[in-house]
Nucleic acid binder design. Structure first.
Length: 780
DNA sequence: GAGCACTGC
């Protein structure tokens, strides 16, 4: 079988990593990113903010320090950042740190860092870049002298938290003081903080209110190769900020693969590459195309178990159902294998995002021991989605099986639908997967496709998220970030024009942007909420419908994973339980009912038990509570009233439905004349109500929360509305002249006529009433 | 009569 080393170890030579242009022209002002600001000598003669007169850093000159200087200070005895004596634990960790590959290149890093405003840094797994580089920067940037901070972004919350904790230990400070982290719902920093780990989304949020990110002297974007939406926007933004703030330093950190693309994007920024520390992984390909990759995967598992030395297996599949199915089959076949041969026990663990945390934890259980004394040891196999590719690391994996597929989000701007499709992975992904076999010792990766297919059919990189998403939120954010000219915004990968047009159009209908594309007051308000624009607009306008408390709850519920649990073993019971919360007018109102029940004293007495009994997800309900609180604070900050229609008022639920319509008028469907399906308004797509709905089939007009494209076109989470509301609440969108001829248009015309007649009658009645003096409910 | 790859504010 053909072989290939998955993890190459290399150290780039100097001419590979140093851009000659920059090296020769360090002070050339033509290069906009070369820093040539005067170097200040920053002594401590005067009393500095921290009173560090005898501080170990006294002789450090900002942006002129050397590795040697830093090493000496690191050796103690005083902590340079809080002047306390350094602990034994600190020195123990220091030894390990000095052993990391990145340590050898500290001076090289500083030289490059001094020479440029923007630096691209490439470090493979195990190089120590995430923990060490920000510290290298700290000793050179001395942000505390300027009242600034160094920021390091991560795509995931757990990473931001755990790395911050690690680095706080390494610097011998308390987490939240000199070193802290900031993620949604939790800001663990203080006025002493000089190094802040944070999610990329969090930094983007900060940029919305601080366009120059003035509180930072250096910004490090880590894991940039993952190309999250937030990282992509931040890169474009930082490219602009760099022009306005010549003294700001920027480091883009990435795994090897597309470093050149980053360099090129940042005006040929210099590159520093540091090797990683992983074990070699042998790659095996199948000699021919595998029609049934699931079957091939199972056979490979059994073959490894029967013939390979001990070591755990990681198998990548695409989704929950496929994984559960594979786990069952593997267990059955393994039992048979054990009966027939003398091989060890095989323990099978599924792993995917929606698995309850206790079950996710099980993957870390050690592999089973031998069945008989002196027999072959047992083995564990983890069958996982992409979650094991980046988010979760399992030590002890020696064998990886990669069928070459994953579920990927795709966006179709024409019908404005995001959906999940099973598609071939990229070469970069395949390499990442293979790398999972070499974390603790040399490993093997079995690719269930041919080498030819790998070379010719797989894309180099996965498509960045920005090319696969609905961008209405992003466009609103960009506008709030002060980017007026979106067409000329320098995206690393510009999204499809149609996607941008769709987003602008949607925001215009929502009155978040005016006809010239400028942010309206409503748009500015909406951008303050971490929500999809439609949800934000619904929430902001809800006080007008006397139900902002209810819409606040509903918005939170729609922003978290499904609160309904439906175990395979008890589907019927779960469905029955759901029906006890049912509101006939639809799923949104049913969600609200569940939430209210959850908040009742009876449920709060023992929420875990209550949720279990009612087939509800405690995790989702709690996170909805969390989101609700955050949104509530933003509402209060913006003086948006929190009000309810009295529950006894007949309009209680009607008001909620009207508020819902005011945000989701673009997601309305009407029953077809045959009554067999629904048609989406304006897009004229044939859709079906999702089988999970509690809605009765008679409803003529509905709003829906999601369009899901699976085996069929479904609309999910649906509630009935009155078509009259559409003209009343979104007259610009429901301009009959803009509709294509057909079913929907005809119905809308009839509704409009009826409304005319009713209006005339009402006027007559009103004139009569006025004479006699009438009353009106204030809640409609 | 079905499903929820994974993140993030």
């Amino acid at each position: 079988m053909p072989e290939e080393r998955a993890s190459k170890r290399y150290k780039p030579s100097a001419d590979e990593v140093v851009n000659p242009y920059l090296a020769d022209n360090q002070d050339d002002s033509d290069n906009i990113y070369t820093r040539s600001a005067p170097k200040k000598k920053l002594g401590f003669e005067k009393s500095s903010a921290n009173g560090l007169q005898d501080a170990p850093l006294t002789n450090f000159v900002r942006h002129q320090t050397t590795a040697e200087q830093a090493l000496k200070v690191e050796d103690g005895p005083l902590n340079p950042f809080n002047l306390k004596p350094l602990s034994q634990k600190y020195f123990d960790i220091l030894k390990i740190r000095r052993d990391l590959p990145v340590h050898l290149q500290r001076q090289e890093f500083l030289d490059l860092y001094h020479s440029t405003q923007i630096l691209v840094f490439v470090g493979e797994t195990g190089s120590g870049k995430t923990t060490q580089i920000p510290q290298f920067v700290l000793f050179d940037d001395l942000p505390h002298l300027e009242g600034k901070m160094v920021a390091c972004t991560q795509p995931r919350r757990v990473a931001a938290m755990s790395v911050a904790k690690r680095v706080a230990d390494e610097l011998d400070v308390n987490l939240g003081e000199e070193v802290g982290y900031s993620i949604r719902f939790e800001d663990n920093t203080s006025n002493r903080t000089i190094l802040k780990y944070m999610t990329d989304g969090m930094l983007l949020r900060e940029a919305m209110n601080d366009h120059n990110l003035d509180r930072y002297s250096c910004i490090i974007l880590d894991e940039a190769h993952e190309r999250t939406l937030a990282t992509d926007i931040l890169m474009g933004l930082l490219k602009e900020i760099a022009l306005r703030r010549k003294e700001l330093k920027i480091i883009i950190m990435s795994a090897t693969l597309d470093a050149q693309k980053f360099q090129k994007y940042f005006h040929d920024a210099p590159l520093l590459a540091v090797p990683g520390r992983t074990h070699p992984v042998e790659i095996y390909y199948t000699p021919e195309y595998q029609r049934d990759y699931l079957e091939a995967a199972i056979q490979t598992v059994l073959q490894i178990h029967a013939t390979e030395p001990s070591g755990d297996i990681l198998l990548f599949l695409t989704g929950e159902e496929e994984i559960e199915d594979a786990c069952r089959k593997i267990s059955l076949e393994a039992d048979e294998l054990i009966r027939e041969t003398d091989c060890g026990e095989l323990k099978v663990y599924p792993l995917y995002g929606s698995l309850p945390p206790q079950q996710q934890q099980k993957i870390f259980d050690p592999a089973p021991g031998p069945r008989v004394k002196n027999g072959p040891p047992g083995r564990k196999i983890v069958v996982s989605t992409n979650i094991a590719e980046t988010s979760l690391t399992i030590d002890g994996i020696v064998y990886v099986i990669d069928p070459g597929f994953s579920k990927q989000k795709v966006y179709n701007p024409r019908i404005r639908v995001e959906s999940l499709l099973v598609a071939p992975i990229s070469k970069a992904s395949a390499q990442q997967r293979a790398g999972r076999a070499g974390r603790t010792r040399p490993g093997k990766c079995f690719r269930l496709y041919t080498e030819e297919a790998f070379k010719k059919e797989l894309n180099e990189q996965s498509y960045p998220e920005i090319l696969r998403s609905n961008l209405s939120s992003t466009v609103l954010e960009l506008k709030k970030l002060g980017i007026d000219d979106l067409v000329h915004f320098d995206f690393m990968d510009p999204p499809a024009p149609e996607t941008m047009m769709r987003a602008l159009e949607e925001l215009n209908y929502l009155a978040c942007l005016d006809d010239d594309g400028n942010l309206t007051p409503l748009g500015r308000l909406a951008s303050d909420f971490p929500l999809d624009p439609m949800l934000a607009v619904m929430l902001i306008t809800s006080p007008e419908f006397y139900c902002s408390n209810e819409i606040l709850s509903l918005t939170a519920l729609l922003s978290v994973p499904s609160i309904f649990v439906r175990p395979n073993s008890a589907r019927k019971k779960a469905d029955e339980m759901k029906m006890t919360f049912r509101h006939v007018d639809g799923d949104h109102l049913t969600l609200l009912n569940v939430y209210h029940a959850f908040k009742s004293p009876e449920a709060q007495y023992n929420p875990a038990q209550w949720c279990y009994d009612h087939f509800l997800s405690l995790r989702s309900l709690q996170s909805a509570d969390n989101v609700r609180l955050q949104l509530k604070r933003i509402m209060e900050k913006n003086d948006l009233d929190l009000i309810s229609t009295p529950f006894e008022d007949p309009n209680y639920y009607t008001n909620v439905r009207r508020a819902l319509t005011s945000g989701f008028f673009m997601q309305v469907a009407k029953k077809s004349s045959s009554g067999k399906h629904y048609i989406t308004v304006k897009d004229n797509q044939d859709v079906l109500l999702h089988p999970s709905t509690v809605l009765e089939k008679e409803s003529e007009w509905v709003v829906y929360n999601e369009f899901v494209l699976t085996t069929k076109n479904y609309i999910r989470t649906v509630t009935t509305i009155k078509p009259e509301w559409l003209f009343e609440l979104a007259p610009a969108y429901f301009d009959i002249n803009t509709f294509k001829k057909g079913d929907v248009k005809m119905s809308l015309e009839r509704v409009k006529q009826k409304m005319e007649v009713a209006r005339e009658r009402a006027e007559k009645r009103a004139r009569a009433l006025n004479k006699n003096g009438g009353t009106k409910s204030r809640y409609t």
